[in-house]
């Protein structure tokens, strides 16, 4: 950053401008003296491999792309929803390495080397629904359905985390998923139905 132009160190630019897409380099100790230009031109797309629902997806993305937008606009997986884009509603909840996170506040580039599971990856390949999906149907745990993928991903995680042992616990640990239709009592009932089934399964 010698010339004050954000993001365009001259040396870095020369070193990488020939590439049309770049992968994200991992900085290591060897780079201490002179950091390796990993992706020196921020305008160049990053070439990423995201493992989504057990399948590797090769994507070429603007570095600013969130995991949510990568899923929806680049991987064709529109189940995860955008409701606020700022971590305030939970509609974009997915699992990363089995833990629930917000895909709207995660850069796609940070999701490399992690297992991503979305709502599309929850049912079995033969179409059998996950017990939580069936429980949401049984208890009418949605109305418009827009927050539902996030609710279900969160609910599955809530059970796996061991936070579904009482009604107050379920309510507290599901409070990161807003439902404007306000299906909350039915969501709690659905989780109570699915939790023991998940343990058996």
């Amino acid at each position: 950053m010698t010339d004050g132009t954000p993001g365009f160190s001259r040396r870095n630019f020369l070193a990488t401008s020939a590439a049309s897409t770049m992968s994200v380099a991992l900085l290591d100790r060897g780079a201490r003296a002179a950091p390796t230009p990993a992706q020196a031109n921020p305008r160049e797309p990053l070439k990423l491999t995201l493992k989504i629902n057990g399948r590797d997806r090769e994507l070429s993305l603007d570095p600013r792309t969130t995991l949510l937008d990568a899923l929806r606009e680049h991987a064709g997986l529109t189940g995860s929803k955008k409701g606020c884009d700022h971590g305030q509603c939970g509609a974009c909840t997915v699992m990363m390495d089995g833990r629930r996170i917000l895909s709207c506040l995660t850069f796609a580039a940070s999701a490399q080397d992690h297992d991503i599971t979305t709502i599309e990856g929850l049912a079995q390949t033969d179409g059998t629904l996950h017990p939580m999906q069936q429980a949401f149907i049984d208890h009418d745990a949605f109305q418009c359905g827009y927050c539902t993928p996030g609710q279900i991903m969160s609910a599955v995680a809530c059970v796996k985390e061991g936070h579904a042992n009482s009604d107050p616990d379920i309510r507290e640990y599901m409070s990161g998923n807003l439902c404007r239709c306000a299906a909350y009592p039915n969501i709690v009932d659905a989780i109570k139905q699915a939790a023991p089934q998940m343990k058996e399964g």
Binding site: N12, A25, A31, P35, A38, P42, L46, P63, R64
Partner: peptide
């Protein structure tokens, strides 16, 4: 705004940036 994205593997390489 556009930015360079890097991943650090240890404290030293992170700080060295």
């Amino acid at each position: 705004r556009p930015f360079e994205f890097e991943r650090a593997s240890d404290n030293q390489s992170a700080i060295a940036t």
